[in-house]
Each structure stands twice: as structure tokens, then as C-alpha cells.
Design a protein around this nucleic acid. Sequence first.
DNA 1: GCATTACCCTGAAAGC
DNA 2: TGCTTTCAGGGTAATG
Length: 274
Amino acid sequence: MPELPEVETIARKLRRAISGKTVAAVYLSGLPLRRPVAASFAEILRNRRVARIHRRGKYLVFELQPPAFWLIHLGMSGRVFFWPRATAGVTRHTHAIITFSDGSALEYRDPRRFGLLAVRQVQHTRGVPELSSLGKDPLSRGFNSDWLQGVLRSTRRDVKSLLLDQTKIAGLGNIYVCEALFHARIHPARRCDRLSRQEIESLVRAIGRVLRRAIRSHGTTFSDFTASDGEPGGNQRHLRVFLREGLRCRRCPGVISRLRQGNRSSYYCPGCQH
DNA sequence: GCATTACCCTGAAAGC
DNA sequence: TGCTTTCAGGGTAATG
């Protein structure tokens, strides 16, 4: 499941691979993803140049010229592949192939079809509803203890559910929230408004550390994730709680537990997270 | 505003 | 072995 570090890894590789290229042709499978791909998608992309590529939350954002924003969200099982010489064939789960004028191509595959492909003809990301509703990026300068304290103090929700709320903090998913709470020694079911200043500071540090390390490792791969060049990530060796139910904690004599919050699993150590 | 539930979808794992 | 059932999860929408 691609979260911020996986999407950042892909964005960095695509920046080298397709910046400056012009879209020549667009193939679409016609199957709906999270939402149906708009009928105008191919037409808007064609003949536009990829001016910049960046990441916002879990979105890949392609800034086009003439102005338009092309978005890819990978959902649960979305993957992108860069093919230097249009050898991309349509597989069972290929939903789009964007071919560039130099013959290279970008393929989007997504077995579960929870992802998103969209394009918006606007001048600024403010006009892109998928992006303007996103909260603060946890790697941005403004993500600090003062800001997070303001957010946490105003709600009685579980800290786990708040950290997953993309309208508050954009980019965290289940893996890195579980890991960050472990490093900050905070139980996932703790109420936001009852966290101490010290715990909030610890949480901010933990989120930054966990994300930066995962980016250095090129993301976490269980089965699905590879970057656009097919390389898997290496961050799984750094995981302390995620998917480790029943195994020994690496920090105390306890055993990792799992708890269900909403419809998501939270992994934590009852011995060192309170 | 927030919690809960359901839904979208497929592949993997578990159960029979 | 082979079939059926269950589960996983990000985002969104409906409901309470």
C-alpha cells in the first residue's frame, strides 16, 4: 500500500525519466477506477508537456504545459512503470499507457482499482479539489509541535484515526502511523486532546524520522510495491510493529498486539506504548 | 463534528 | 486437490 515514502520514491524517479516530455498518445482500459476516468482525460493530456512532477500527500502531481494538472493516486494496489522504449504491453490490470513523443511510455496498473487518474485544466493546484482538501504535509516546514498541538487539542478522536485523516495530515497511511506511534511510545487508541506536550513533540520527531528513513530505503515492499523502474523498497527491515502481531517487541520483553480501529488494524506494543 | 458502517475490488490465505 | 469464504485496506458516502 503506497504511502508518502513510496509515492515520493516514484516521483523522484519519474522526475528524471519523463520531465520535459510531451504526451503523444493515451491508452485507457475504459474500466472505472475509484471513479471513472473522465472522457476528456486522453484529449486533455495529448500534446501537453510534462513541466514538473511532484508529490502532494499520496498523490503524484504532473504539472503540464499548457497549464493543467494530471493526478495519479495509487490507492491500495496501483503501480506505475516507466518503459524507456514503448515496450509496454497491456496486461490484465493495465488501465492506462501514456506514450511520449520520444517513444517512451508510462503504464498504470491497478488490480483492485482503488486508485485514481484525473486531469484538471486549471492554472493553480488551488483549483484541484483533490489537492486543495489535503492537510499539511508531514515533511513540510510547518509541520511542527506547535501546529500539531493546535490540531490535537481541538478534538477528542483517537490519535490513530486523526493521523490517518488526509484532510489534517496528508500522506500518512497505516504502516507509518503504526510505526511512528511505536517510536513515540503512544498507544493508538489515546485521545488526541489528552496527549502531553512532550508526547506531541515526540510524535512529530517520530513521524519525521520514520518517513525520512523509509524514503532513504526507497519505500516499504511486502508484495506489491515497486518503483517505476521495477525496484522494490527496502524499508520492511526497519518495521517494528506493522504486521508483527504475536512477535516479540524489539525494545521490551512484550509481544506485539493488534487492535481494530474503524475498519483498520493497528499494531502496537502494549509493553511500551501507553 | 464525529463515529460507525458499507462500498468499491482482487488476490492471497484460510477453511472445508 | 479444488472449491468457497474471508480478509485486507484508502478514500468516500450515507447514516446516526
